[in-house]
Design a binder for these strands. Structure first.
Lengths: 208, 208
DNA sequence: TATCTTTCATACTTATAGTTCGATTATCGT
DNA sequence: ACGATAATCGAACTATAAGTATGAAAGATA
């Protein structure tokens, strides 16, 4: 077999397996999905799965990377050169929020949480920089703010990228995890709360 | 045996087990510690452990509660009625940072992350409100800000409690997880970055 | 046809949480 | 001190799932 066709076939198999795993992970959760499940649903034998992926975590990480591309793609789509700083900021927030709604299972991983939930055997795969694309997007957002002269003068770009990222993802995660508190103690629905938080947070970035 | 002595003995046994588990969790990590380990180190048989705790998660949760008391105790100690709003705010941040340094294993749990890292068998213990004490402290911090008239006039108390909590814990967690990025991309050490972030974040709360 | 390569089925290994139960030991009222 | 009751022990057992090993079958290659 030509090496071209061979490589294409390998890719095809990998994609099949990932697709099956994705479906099961969504359906039953990552923990509850076994390698046998994945094999059966993808219609390969388990041994073949292990030809293409060295572990369950390996599969999970590949999927996380896919979702990261989707997310950054969505963000890029809704922020262009025309969009002003403030609009861009809120659109970024919106994208992150909708992504968390759609794929709550992956959101935490994209935001830098420890890779998989369990794994007795700490495989300690090189924690390659999953968030780079996202940081780059935040970086260009902030540059826009500098260009339009709306950022506070004492803002430093690089640390602020991380700052924005961590605060926003913290806000979104807590909004998700503490739904009951939001409802009972704060008396706000999620969207209202998020809007309020993003607006308040915005004030830490801009001149007033 | 009198019910008083009996209860005290039960408490003694529980404490012993928790202490042993605490030590092992610190030493080898929660995942890597088995129930047999805990039994041996606490000097009970495994069956006895299961008399006092229904699962490993149960043990873990009890420890998390203990640590939450420690944390809120520390915060209460370093913030009193005399301390102004700004000082109180920075002291709160400091307490959270030192706590995360001392007990990184528990920090995420205290901050509302999913209870234990793994557990196939989702025991789904009622996710009782672990963060209540902390929220109350943040709430009184904000009230101080209102009293001293330093908070922005459009700040609403209840949602802001969650807002402050989630942003700060997000910042601390990312500072911990992205040490390499801080070093290589941001060129700041952790403490410098945290100081910068907390200062910037403060601006979202106060009048200027 | 002879030889790789890929896939398959199956059974095995290892690891650990949680359970069961009969035996043992300590405690207590009398 | 004695017999009942309760706490503890020990050890085997169940269940589950990740990952491995192996040899057979199917398919491509030349």
């Amino acid at each position: 077999m030509g090496t071209r066709k061979k490589a294409a076939l390998e890719q095809f198999n990998r994609d099949n397996i990932l697709e099956a795993a994705k479906e099961l992970f969504e359906l039953k959760g990552v923990e509850a999905t076994t390698m046998d499940d994945i094999a059966k649903h993808a219609d390969y034998s388990k041994s073949t799965i292990y030809v293409y992926f060295k572990s369950k975590e390996d599969i999970y990480n590949s999927i996380v990377e896919d979702y990261m591309s989707i997310l950054t793609g969505e963000i890029e789509t809704c922020i262009d050169a025309e969009t002003g700083f403030e609009d861009s900021y809120y659109r970024l927030c919106d994208c992150l929020v909708s992504f968390e709604e759609k794929y709550p299972k992956y959101y935490a991983s994209l935001m830098g949480e420890e890779k998989m939930t369990n794994s007795r055997k700490r495989t300690d795969i090189i924690n390659q920089d999953v968030g780079k694309e996202l940081r780059d997007l935040i970086s260009s957002l902030l540059e826009k703010g500098v260009k339009h002269n709306v950022l506070r003068k004492d803002i430093e770009l690089q640390p602020t990228v991380l700052y924005v990222w961590s605060a926003i993802s913290g806000i979104i995660q807590v909004a998700d995890r503490k739904k009951d508190i939001l409802k009972n103690k704060v008396n706000m629905d999620r969207d209202e709360y998020l809007k309020y938080s993003f607006r308040t947070f915005y004030e830490s970035l801009v001149r007033r």
